[in-house]
Computed example of a mutant assay.
Amino acid sequence: MTSRRATTTLWRPTGPEELDLVRALDWKAWPPRLPEQPIFYPVLNEDYAIRIARDWNVKHSGVGHVTRFEVDTAFLARYPVQQAGGRTILELWVPAEELDEFNAHIVGAIELVHTFR
C-alpha cells in the first residue's frame, strides 16, 4: 500500500517574465530571486492571488498570471503564515536563500490557472 504525503495548495501571482522562467524550468520550480527580492511569497488563497495578478501585475506589466502548485505540508511548517492585510491576505515568506529547498518540496507541476490582460 502506498501512502501519499500530505500537500498544501499554494498560489503565486506572477508577471510575464517570471512565468517565462517557470516555463523554462519545465513547470517544476521557481526561479532564483533577484537581488532586490529577498523573499519569495506564495499566497494561501486563490482570491488574493487573483487580486494581485489582476490589479498589480496587469498595471505594471500589461499581463498578470495566477499559478497553483502543491507543496509538502510538513515542510511548510517552518514558514509561519503571515497576515499581510485583511484576514484573507495570507502569505508565506520564504527567504530567497531557501528557495532551492522550497522548490525540492513542490509536488507535481506548477499550473497556470488564470491570465489577465
Rank of each mutant, 00 (worst) to 15 (best):
P31C: 11
Y79C: 02
F75E: 10
E46Q: 08
N45C: 14
A74F: 09
V22W: 09
R51T: 12
G64C: 00
H65T: 09
R23N: 13
Q83L: 06
F69L: 04
L34F: 10
D72A: 03
E46N: 05
V63D: 00
I89G: 00
P31F: 03
R78W: 00
F40N: 06
A29H: 10
Q82H: 14
I50A: 09
I89R: 14
W27F: 14
H60A: 09
E91K: 13
R23F: 08
P32L: 12
K59S: 12
F69E: 07
R54Y: 08
Q82D: 11
L44D: 00
N45T: 01
L76I: 06
E91I: 14
P35L: 10
Y79P: 02
V22F: 07
L44F: 02
D55M: 11
H60K: 14
E36H: 12
R68A: 12
D55N: 15
T88S: 13
Q83W: 06
L90W: 07
I52H: 08
E91S: 07
A29I: 01
R78A: 03
Q37E: 14
L25P: 06
G62S: 06
F40T: 05
G62F: 09
L25S: 13
R68Y: 01
S61Q: 10
L25Y: 11
Q37T: 06
P80K: 04
P38H: 12
L90T: 09
P42I: 03
P32W: 04
E70K: 11
V43E: 00
N57L: 00
R78C: 05
A84C: 12
T88R: 12
N45D: 06
T67K: 01
F75K: 00
G85M: 06
D26P: 02
K59F: 10
L76H: 04
F69C: 00
R51N: 12
Q37I: 01
V66A: 04
P32R: 13
A77W: 07
T67N: 04
P31E: 11
E91T: 11
A77T: 13
